[in-house]
């Protein structure tokens, strides 16, 4: 996948913004991902040069953190909590249902590019398990019906 000129400009803007900030890589990568949805590998050399790192270090940083994506996600990201509290309330059946309904596994995007499915380990919503997060919105006490309605609404 090639990066568009518009995306590259955005990345350059972000690189400029955090140039004098100590520990810049975290806020920088967030800014890039918030702006263009992922962190293109083609930009590693530019980032490395601006922050005096090696390309390997930039690659190592991006790949260490689950939150950062190296490829664009679908229009929406659905994250299903896999942690213990949600398991105790039936999240396993819920994840199986989501995978089957969308016809994809974790870290994949549905064919219509509508939903990317991700596992997540605790949303802090353990009092109302099982929980999922759709984009930035947490939903508690999720049932198969709730998921079906949610997916329908996104279409």
């Amino acid at each position: 996948m090639t990066v568009s000129k518009k995306e590259l400009d955005k990345v350059s803007e972000c690189i400029e913004r955090f140039k004098d900030k100590p520990g810049a890589l975290l806020p920088l990568m967030h800014a890039i991902q918030d702006n263009i949805g992922y962190i293109p590998e083609d930009c590693y050399p530019q980032i490395a040069k601006a922050y005096n790192h090696s390309v390997a270090e930039v690659h190592g940083f991006v790949t260490f953190y689950h939150h950062f994506r190296r490829h664009p996600a679908g229009k929406n990201v659905l994250q299903i909590c896999r942690a213990e509290s949600c398991q105790s309330m039936g999240s396993e059946a819920l994840e199986a249902h989501c995978k089957q309904t969308l016809g994809i596994d974790y870290h994949q995007t549905s064919e219509d590019n509508l939903i990317t499915l991700e596992p997540i380990y605790c949303l802090g919503n353990c009092a109302c398990s099982p929980a999922v997060m759709i984009n930035d919105q947490v939903i508690g006490r999720v049932t198969k019906e709730k998921i079906n309605n949610l997916i329908k609404k996104l279409k």
Partner: peptide, 8 residues
């Protein structure tokens, strides 16, 4: 505030 990136 510094935003982390999903590493336990």
């Amino acid at each position: 505030v510094t935003r982390a990136a999903g590493a336990y």
